[in-house]
């Protein structure tokens, strides 16, 4: 059990003890005994004193519990009798669902969402801990492989806030492709994830069109006091709905792309469609298939066809410049 988890259980135990109508006004000795019995520990008085202080005063924790000490009763009580750190009664299945959700959120958000969100998650976990404490496992029930932190990650909250507040931002961008720096002024519209990389999509003041910027290539963003232009915000929608990737090639026009796949790739794509528009056009006896997708061509789509060129052949010859995409090594031609 991690220390933080144990702390949260103590908060919960203290809360329950103070609210216990059958044994009101628990003394410090009572709280110490309850925590020690429940946790199988030998805690010191100062630990419980520190917990009570945190429950009362720790702003990040956010409980601001109205805990008072009654000299006449020699025990603790809430000055607001209706107060509890976990006021929402939950059904068992709801608790299970929330615990699972919290675990996933914690895994995914560990480095992605700001401290305030983590604090909120912690609070939820505190209120659920009583029910979940006995379900300790040595490994997490859910595991998501996350790549190491992307460079530029530190700008995520700043950019998210700029989007929220509709503030134009200035930043330096370094293009890996062109080995070139540029100063940019962008009306930020959306942070988008693709294949574990984060991108900013926004209206470029200089080019008057939507541009995509990978967070790792952004330096030193600052907010500007100029009028935010949301006139092209709707153009982000195709990025979300009609693209595989984030960098459109040439135009924003959707194309029907047909490609022939090996039996292996056909099985894979059937189980993991590339896009919701994916359809099987033809199936052959050997298992090979021809698929179609309706997408805006992107660099990432081009890379996908290139990376899978041993098993996939694109039939539209005019979409991408990379001729190797049409190389078809292992498949029988139809």
């Amino acid at each position: 059990m991690s220390l933080s988890k144990e702390v949260y259980i103590r908060y919960k135990l203290i809360d329950i003890a103070i609210k216990n109508l059958h044994a009101p006004y628990p003394s410090m000795e009572d709280l110490l005994r309850i925590c020690n019995e429940r946790l199988g520990k030998d805690l010191a008085v100062c630990t419980i004193q520190r917990d009570i202080k945190a429950m009362k005063e720790d702003e990040e924790l956010g409980f601001m519990a109205p805990i008072k000490f009654s000299k006449s009763k020699n025990g603790y009580y809430y000055s607001d009798p209706g107060y509890s750190i976990s006021k929402v009664p939950l059904q068992e299945n709801e608790i299970e669902a929330l615990i699972s959700a919290c675990e996933i959120i914690q895994i995914v958000s560990g480095s992605r969402v700001g401290d305030s969100f983590n604090s909120a998650v912690k609070k939820i976990m505190v209120s659920l801990m009583e029910e979940s404490e006995e379900k300790e496992v040595s490994i997490p029930m859910v595991h998501i492989d996350l790549p190491p932190k992307q460079l530029g990650w530190e700008h995520f909250d700043f950019i998210l806030n700029a989007i929220k507040m509709q503030n134009v931002i200035s930043f330096i961008h370094y293009s890996y492709r062109n080995n070139e720096f540029n100063a940019n002024m962008v009306h930020p519209y959306q942070l988008k994830e693709f294949n574990n990389y984060w991108y900013l999509i926004g209206l470029s003041e200089k080019d008057h069109e939507l541009k995509t910027f990978s967070l790792d290539q952004i330096y030193d963003p600052m907010e500007l006091s100029i009028k935010y232009n949301y006139s092209k915000m709707e153009e982000v929608r195709p990025y979300n709905e009609n693209m595989y990737g984030v960098y459109p090639i040439n135009s924003m026009k959707k194309r029907i792309l047909k490609f022939q796949c090996s039996a292996f790739m056909a099985k894979f794509l059937s189980a993991h469609p590339m896009h919701e528009s994916q359809k099987i056009i033809k199936s052959y006896a050997e298992g090979n298939k021809i698929f179609s997708v309706e997408l805006i061509p992107t660099r990432e789509l081009e890379q996908w066809f290139f990376a899978n060129r041993a098993d996939v052949m694109l039939r539209n010859k005019d979409v991408f410049k990379n001729e190797n995409i049409s190389m078809f090594h292992n498949l029988k031609m139809y």
């Binding site: 200035s170 330096i172 370094y174 080995n179 070139e180 720096f181 100063a183 330096y219 030193d220």
Partner: peptide
């Protein structure tokens, strides 16, 4: 070496560069 940005403020003059 590219001179990218100049920020003038009451505290300082900041000049940003990119070197390839």
């Amino acid at each position: 070496l590219k001179l990218l940005r100049i920020t003038l403020s009451k505290e300082h003059t900041k000049i940003d560069f990119g070197y390839q």
